[in-house]
């Protein structure tokens, strides 16, 4: 298995490298090694997730489940909860991106830079609020349901994206910005062609952190009838159905790991070449 994967990595890199005449065989081999190394962790992670999921299914199939448990854990029901959970996560994530990235860009522009420190301090204090408290508080204000859950999720996940957007932009070498301006690129052109592409790796890792936070926090949405896989955990506790409790917990964890894996794959593919 491992050898086969290694081989496929090699061929992939060779075709990728074909255009570069100067790359000798030694360099190509080293490159392939690096490529495999960098993908290896991702492969392991996916295999691990699949293995645990498989183990869960085997365990459920071999445990004598009561009628209630069978209804709660029907595949269609589980799939429905998972979809709800993903909806919560993704809708919140989109809103977070739309709000946090422009805000991060704005706060690193010269004119608004003085605001960046206070904004970060407020966001940091907000982050200290317990997620469960935030979810419940907002439900008092906005009522129960999907959108109340979304609002608290968004509030909770904005910080990592905002902070990493700002850090990513701030760590771009100022001389490159100046080189761009010196060549006659407008401020907007420098932002979109130089600063943002160079900030992408840091921004993406912030976005991945936010996604993982969102998956975890979305499990709390069940407390305010927001849907998602959390309902399996509360049902399991309330009705003392251990198998439901364990299934819910494991599925939430696996979903978080899967989203994390997905985020890492995106980071890998979207990282600008040459960095």
């Amino acid at each position: 298995m491992s050898a086969a994967l290694n081989e496929s990595a090699l061929t992939q890199s060779e075709t990728g490298d074909a255009g570069d005449e100067a790359a000798g065989p030694i360099r190509t081999a080293a490159y392939a090694g690096g490529l495999w190394r960098s993908w290896r962790g991702l492969v392991y992670q996916l295999v691990g997730i699949a293995a645990v999921l498989f183990g869960l299914i085997i365990w459920l199939a071999n445990t004598g489940l009561s009628a209630t448990e069978l209804t709660t854990l029907a595949p269609a029901a589980l799939w429905g909860y998972t979809v709800e959970h993903l909806q919560l996560t993704l809708v919140a994530a989109v809103i977070v991106l739309v709000v946090a990235i422009p805000l991060g860009v704005a706060l690193t522009r010269k004119r608004l830079r003085f605001l960046s420190a206070p904004v970060l301090i407020v966001a940091n204090i907000g982050q200290a609020a317990p997620a469960i408290g935030l979810v419940v508080l907002l439900a008092f204000w906005l009522g129960f349901g999907f959108w109340a859950a979304i609002v608290s999720l968004v509030l909770y996940a904005i910080l990592p994206v905002l902070r990493n957007t700002m850090v990513g932009l701030q760590q771009v070498d100022q001389r490159l910005v100046e080189a761009g301006r010196g060549m006659g690129m407008s401020a907007a052109a420098v932002l979109f062609k130089v600063e943002l592409p160079l900030a992408v790796p840091v921004m993406l890792s912030g976005i991945r952190t936010a996604l993982v936070l969102l998956v975890g926090t979305a499990a709390l949405a069940t407390f305010i009838n927001g849907g998602g896989l959390g309902i399996l955990i509360t049902t399991g506790v309330n009705l003392k159905l251990t198998s439901v409790l364990i299934t819910g917990s494991v599925l939430v964890a696996l979903l978080a790991l899967f989203i994390d894996w997905f985020g890492r794959v995106v980071e890998h593919l979207a990282r600008p070449k040459g960095l």
Binding site: E178, A179, R181, G182, P272, K273
Partner: peptide, 30 residues
């Protein structure tokens, strides 16, 4: 200013090349 600077080449220490662009893309900017 931007139009003016397109008429003047600008070289800084270490070249100031954009690391995420190839050599050709870097040269092709202006």
């Amino acid at each position: 200013g931007d139009k003016l600077r397109r008429k003047m080449g600008y070289v800084i220490q270490a070249g100031g090349l954009f690391p995420h662009m190839t050599v050709a893309t870097n040269i092709a900017i202006v």
